[in-house]
Amino acid sequence: MLENSVGARAGSFGDYEQLGEDVLIERCKAGDTAAFDEIVRRFEKRVFNYALRVTGNYNDACDVAQEAFIRAFHSIQTFRGDAKFATWIYRIVTNVYLDERKKLKSHPTTSLDDTIELDENSVTRQIEDSTPSPDEIVQTKERMRILQRAINALPDYQRIIITLYHVEHRSYEEIAEILKLPIGTVKSRLNRARLAIAEMLESEPELFG
């Protein structure tokens, strides 16, 4: 017999912000979704930014980042703790992105002009002078837009490596672990990606003189 039983589940689950990563992961494995919520809180910005730079598009980044967290939730039991959680989650985001690319390859939807719109604050933070003129803000914004367009034009693996190294500040060893590639391959692909970016920016002398 099934009655409409409703029990209030609200209430404190303890102070998760104070817990270490390994404790949170153990709790996630035991089915504690509040622990997973805390994991999402800690990693959402990193995961979203990584997704944003590799997809080059705000909407796609939302979808990829969300899907990555759902995959992480499903496979948390397989996380053995040999690697750092960050390394593991970057690998999941990468796989989600590559899977989506495979699906969309026949119907590409990202145009080169569909680049990231940066809010003004995030740009002004990057400017060393504390009082940038409106022209400087516009110019910096334009530079970042062109830089993102150059990143978008790179082949998938180069784009992923350049994002992991320069945006996410991962070491060669971590990138090799995330992508399951030899360190030598990571280094040579990073060099090729950097050379390609430099070459692309050369065609914008008024901004990158």
Binding site: D37, V40, R41, E44, K45, F48, N49, L52, R53, Y58, C62, A65, Q66, F69, I70, I116, L118, D119, S122, V123, R125, Q126, R143, M144, L147, Q148, I162, H166, V167, R194, L195, I197, A198, E199, L201, E202, F208
Partner: peptide, 25 residues
């Protein structure tokens, strides 16, 4: 040019996820 391009890459700003992102996850 190469060195300049790298310095630009290092200056790519962080962008916040949209409001309500965590809740929708």
């Amino acid at each position: 040019r190469f060195r300049y391009a790298i310095s630009m890459l290092e200056r790519l700003p962080d962008v916040n996820p949209p409001a309500g992102f965590r809740a929708s996850v």
